[in-house]
Design a protein around this nucleic acid. Structure first.
Lengths: 328, 328
DNA sequence: TTTAGAAATGTTTACGTTTACATTTGAGAT
DNA sequence: ATCTCAAATGTAAACGTAAACATTTCTAAA
C-alpha cells in the first residue's frame, strides 16, 4: 500500500533519498538512511520491483524453460539455482515445455514479454531458432543447459562423453568384458575405454533404444541374444526397462549379471545400483554464476562452454560375485 | 526494442488503439486491429508486461514457495500448474525454502516485492504469521498447499486421514492384522479401519519417526520387537529407512512381511511396492483454478478448503504368499 | 568571516503501458 | 442537408520508481 512517496513524507525527506536509502547509495548520510529505513519499516513499505524494473530497465528476472522435467536431475538444479540467484537479487520465472510443437519458442516469447534479463533452457529441437535471433537483437542473454545445438550461444554442458567413458572403464575394471550399452550414448567414449586396455567394443553391444516408445522388448531381446556379463543403461527410462528385462529373464545382479546406471536418479540408490552421478550443486552454481555474468558483462567476447564432469558412485550392482571387496 | 508508440506510428493510429488491439477490446474496429497487429508483427513488437503490470496493477505473476522439494510429489504439480496458469496469462515465480529459520517468510517478502497477485505455499511452521497478515492487508491471495496451519486462509489439502484409512483398509483386506504404522500419521484413521472390522489397533504398532534424523534404528528395533506381519511406511524418508531395516533383518516382502508406502514416489514402482498415490493433475488443476479464482473474485465469502482424495495403487508387496490373485 | 568544494538532498523527467475522458467519425432518422 | 447517438479513435494523466541534474548544506582552509 505504502509507496516511496509515503515513506519520504514520513521521514521528512524527498522521494529520491528514499530510493538512495534502499540502494545503499554512498551519496546519502548514514543517519538519514537510518531514519528512512525506520519510516519504511513503520509503514510496512516494500519497494515495488515492477516499477523499479520499468524505470531501471533491469527486471531482475531470469527465466528457465524446462523441457523434460521427468528427468529428476533438474529438480535440485533448479532449487540450488534459485537460491543462488535470489542471493544476487534475482528471481526465477519457471516455464515448462509441454511437448506441443511450438511450446519451447512460445515459452521463450512469454519470457521476453516478461522482460527477463536472461533465460536458461534445454533446447529440444531447433524450432526456436527465430526466437533465439530475437533474443540476440534484444540483448537478452541465453544459456543452453545440458545440450548445445546452438553453436553461437553459451552453453553449460554435462560431459556425457566423459561420463560414458568412466562408466565403461569402471565396468572393465570390475572385470566385465561383455558390456551392453543400452542407449548407445557416446559410442566413441565406450570404445575408447575398451581400446585403452587393448580390447575392442563389439557394435552388437550397442542398443539404440531412445526412439522406442517402450524400450523393454528391444532390450530384453538383445540381452538374450548377446548374453552380456554387464549392462550399462543410459538414463531413467532405459534403466527402468532394463530392470524389467532382467527380472523377466530371471537375471539377478550382481550374481548373474552386472548392472550400472547412467544418471543417479531416485530409485537407483534404493536398488543398490552403481551409477554415474552429476555434481548437482556445481552445475547449479555454475549455471547461476554464468547467467549473471552474461547479464552483467555487457559484451561477451567469445562463447563460454563449460563442461561439467560426472563421477562414479560405486554400489553393489557391479560387485562381481567372486570379489568380496575391490580396493578401488 | 519496439514499443507501443512505434507500433502506433507505423500503423498510423494512436498509442491507445494499440493497447486496445492487444486486448481485443470491443471498442476497436476489427480492420484497424488487424492493421495494428500486422504492424506489430513487422516490428517484432512484444508488449512489455512489466509496464503493463505497473499501470494496470495486475502483475500477472503468481508465486509458489516450495519447502520440501525433496518430496517428488511437488514436481509434476508444479509443472501442471504452470501450464494451467500460463494458459490464463499468468506466469509462475518459484522460490525455495532452504531450511534457514526465516527462509519461508523471506521468500514471501520477496514475492510481495515482486507484486505477485497470489502465492501458493506449504507452511512449514507459523513463523510467517506476520507476513501472512501483511498479505491480507495488501489483498494478496494466499493458498496453503498440503498442510493448513493457518485457519483463516484458504487451503488445498490432501486428505491424508482418508489416505491412511484406505491404506490400512487395503492391508486388512489383504489379510494382514499386525500392521506397523511407521510415521504414525493419522492414528485415528488407522484405528478406524481396524474398528470397522471389529478389531483394535495396538498403540505399540505406531512408530513416531518423523523427528528422528535417521529413523532407521528406531524402525528396525520396533519391527524386531512387535513382529508385524506388514509395515505401512509414511513418506519417502520412512520408506527408505524401512526398506533398509527389512533388508537388515533379512525380511523379504511379500514372502516374510507385507509392505506398503504412503506416497507413490519414484522408487516405489521400481520395487513393486503397493502405495497410496495422489492424483497429481487433479491437485495441480485445482490449485491453479483456485488461486485464479481467489484473485479474480475480489471478496471471498468464507474460506474454501478443498480436500483431495488419494487412492491405492496395488502392487506385489502386499500380495500375501498364499493368495495367488486377489479379486480386489 | 568568507569561500571553495564536497557532501547531502531535492526536483523533475521518463520508463511503457492502461484508462478515464475528450474528440472525431459514421450511420440512420428526420 | 441536418441532427442524434453510437462507434471509433485520440489525448493525456497516471502507475512507483531511478537517475540526471539542480540546489542546498556542511566542512575546512584561507
Amino acid at each position: 500500500m505504502a509507496n516511496s512517496r509515503d515513506v519520504a513524507q514520513r521521514a521528512g525527506v524527498s522521494i529520491a533519498s528514499v530510493s538512495r536509502a534502499f540502494h545503499n547509495d554512498p551519496k546519502i548520510k548514514p543517519t538519514t538512511a537510518q531514519r528512512i529505513l525506520e519510516a519504511a519499516r513503520e509503514l510496512n513499505y516494500v519497494p515495488n520491483l515492477v516499477a523499479s524494473g520499468l524505470k531501471s530497465r533491469q527486471s531482475k528476472g531470469i527465466g528457465i524453460v524446462i523441457s523434460d522435467i521427468e528427468n529428476p536431475f533438474y529438480i535440485p538444479v533448479i532449487k540450488h539455482m534459485e537460491l543462488a540467484l535470489r542471493k544476487q537479487g534475482y528471481r526465477l520465472i519457471i516455464m515448462f515445455d509441454d511437448g506441443e510443437p511450438n511450446s519451447e519458442s512460445e515459452a521463450l516469447l512469454q519470457m521476453m514479454a516478461n522482460q527477463v534479463e536472461g533465460v536458461l533452457f534445454t533446447p529440444k529441437d531447433t524450432r526456436s531458432k527465430e526466437m533465439v535471433g530475437r533474443y540476440r537483437e534484444k540483448q537478452i542473454r541465453l544459456l543452453q543447459l545440458y545440450t548445445a545445438p546452438y553453436e553461437d550461444l553459451d552453453a553449460l554442458q554435462v560431459d556425457d562423453d566423459y561420463g560414458v567413458y568412466i562408466a565403461t572403464r569402471h565396468l572393465l575394471q570390475m572385470g566385465y568384458r561383455r558390456i551392453l550399452n543400452v542407449g548407445s550414448s557416446a559410442p566413441s567414449a565406450f570404445q575408447r575405454a575398451f581400446a585403452e586396455i587393448g580390447l575392442d567394443a563389439d557394435p552388437a553391444f550397442l542398443v539404440r533404444a531412445f526412439d522406442e516408445s517402450d524400450p523393454f522388448p528391444l532390450i530384453k531381446e538383445r540381452i538374450a541374444a548377446v548374453k552380456p556379463d554387464a549392462v550399462l543403461a543410459i538414463a531413467d527410462r532405459n534403466g527402468r526397462a532394463t530392470i524389467q528385462a532382467l527380472g523377466n529373464l530371471s537375471l539377478r545382479y550382481p550374481q548373474d549379471i552386472g548392472f550400472m546406471m547412467y544418471d543417479d536418479v531416485a530409485w537407483v540408490s534404493m536398488l543398490n545400483v552403481t551409477a554415474i552421478a552429476h555434481p548437482i550443486e556445481v552445475i547449479a552454481d555454475t549455471a547461476a554464476h554464468r547467467i549473471l555474468q552474461l547479464i552483467s558483462c555487457g559484451q561477451q567476447h567469445g562463447l563460454v562452454t563449460a563442461s561439467i564432469k560426472p563421477y562414479v558412485v560405486p554400489r553393489g550392482s557391479t560387485q562381481r560375485p567372486g570379489d568380496d571387496a575391490e580396493g578401488c
